[in-house]
């Protein structure tokens, strides 16, 4: 297990993202002796400068990415750089997303092994299980990854996860690896599809379906990642509170006006309103069928009293922005 007290250098990939920013903030507050290196292909000029944090703007598929590993000799890596399916990332085709998410992840893992990193955490998502009518409540980590059965656009999500997990088992004797599959991460600093959907004014809300959702506040998610680095052994872990809430109730708590309509009209509507409502049509099944996960495996190591924010509090905080 990694010990923060003895850790010198830590790499955070995807450092410009909201979750990475909170993770960096918490790490630098609690472990100021650790030198944090944040890498992202996006600009990080706007981020607050701290002596213990170095930001490097670079794509991790680039040739000189290896130089960073050589220069800093990292003890651990947080790979939070998954290219998500937000409106900003619309410009990326499936092939490009596959390249960045799958090939990029593979590269990060191989470099971590080559440069003797002790532990790596890879952030995946609960989307890998797929939103299907026959999903059980709750889904365990050993369930098949069915996200891309219906929507090939989600191939990058499942393949990235599979690359990380098969690599993890192959090298389990050499490096500790965690693959984390969190439920919907929400918060004022997060800009993922579900947060945008929940916040959007007049977003279409299905009247013919009302799936249950699990939400984790961004701050709780960052805390789980940090604690897992020290306390959780190699493996795949779902991350979700035991609470769940229906989609309609969640929208109601946030207080955003809704456009009630049948789901059968949602897909054409999503295309029609794509400029005002950024929610990919291939994610529509996630607002149709529940995909609830069990995080009992993680609970064995971190306890079940992990989360500071109740689901309702986390949703109400979205109102503030």
């Amino acid at each position: 297990m990694l010990n923060y007290a003895k850790t010198q250098n830590l790499l955070i990939i995807g450092a410009a993202g909201g979750l990475a920013q909170i993770t960096i903030g918490l790490l630098s507050k609690h472990y100021p002796h650790i030198h944090l290196v944040g890498v992202d292909s996006r600009s990080m000029d706007h981020l607050p400068k701290k002596p213990e944090v170095t930001f490097i703007q670079m794509s991790y598929t680039r040739g000189n990415f290896e130089k960073i590993f050589r220069d800093y000799s990292f003890d651990a890596v947080f790979h939070l750089g998954r290219l998500s399916h937000t409106k900003e990332n619309d410009k990326y085709t499936l092939t490009q997303r596959l390249d960045l998410n799958v090939m990029g992840t593979s590269r990060i893992l191989d470099l971590s092994l080559k440069f003797k990193v002790q532990k790596i955490i890879t952030l995946s998502t609960y989307h890998v299980y797929g939103a299907l009518a026959d999903n059980p409540v709750f889904i365990n980590e050993d369930a098949p990854l069915r996200a891309s059965i219906k929507y090939p656009e989600l191939r990058d999500v499942t393949e990235m996860d599979q690359v990380a997990t098969s690599w993890m088992w192959k090298h389990q004797g050499e490096i500790e690896t965690l693959v984390m599959r969190p439920c919907n991460i929400i918060g004022p600093q997060i800009n993922n599809s579900i947060t945008r959907y929940l916040r959007s004014r007049y977003a279409p809300v299905p009247i013919d379906y009302n799936p249950m959702f699990q939400f984790i506040h961004e701050f709780d998610m960052a805390r789980v990642l940090i604690q897992s680095m020290e306390s959780v052994p190699t493996g795949i872990y779902n991350i979700a509170p035991s609470e769940s809430i229906s989609l309609r109730k969640a929208r109601e708590l946030i207080g955003a006006p809704a456009l009630p309509m049948p789901i059968s009209l949602l897909s054409p509507a999503a295309k029609l309103f794509k400029y005002v409502w950024a929610y990919p049509d291939y994610l529509l099944d996630y607002v149709r069928f529940s995909c609830l996960i069990s995080s009992s495996s993680l609970g064995k190591y971190l306890g079940n009293d992990l989360y500071r924010f109740k689901t309702r509090e986390a949703l109400e905080l979205l109102k503030l922005k």
């Binding site: 709750f138 769940s244 809430i245 529940s290």
Partner: peptide, 8 residues
């Protein structure tokens, strides 16, 4: 009040 299977 909130049931994971959707009981209301």
């Amino acid at each position: 009040k909130e049931d994971p299977w959707g009981l209301n």
